[in-house]
Amino acid sequence: MKKKVDTNKIEISFSLNGEKKTMLIKSSMILLDLIRDEIGLTGTKTGCNEGECGACTVLINDVAVNSCLFPAINIQGKNVTTIEGISDGVKLDPVQEALIEKGGVQCGFCTSGMVMTIKGMQTKFKKGKHKPTTEEIKKGLEGNLCRCTGYVKIVEAAEKVIHGHS
């Protein structure tokens, strides 16, 4: 019997956490569902599915995006980094270390998204050679909601890694 070609599906190639991947996906698929349901990496969280809470934040070519609003086909040829790929697997990333040490983690459901957003900010500011103010850092975190911490410790952690002091 001849194999039926699913016209709704499309082949994409991308890099996920440093590993090259080629997958056949539904053209309508959202990146968050690809990551969680198809690939099975559950560190990226579904908080609202409408781009308001930031729990699903991942990096695409080092830029933080809400994966719940991002069409998966748009990662063609790009580097996707999730919380599972943020550290080298041996040592924690300084962003993770800072959040732990400062006490920026309570229930932890927003934490993956927070890590990715702070990482994205760190890269952006490093590239632009601009030293952001605390207000700018807070602004950068506005897209990530947290109900437990009141953000203070998360902002402190972000400042630590972005400004490079304790």
Partner: peptide, 18 residues
Amino acid sequence: PKLDAGIRTTGKAIYGHD
């Protein structure tokens, strides 16, 4: 620091959704 902060910061904590 919280004992469970490590697993919660690395995406390894298993919530109901996972």
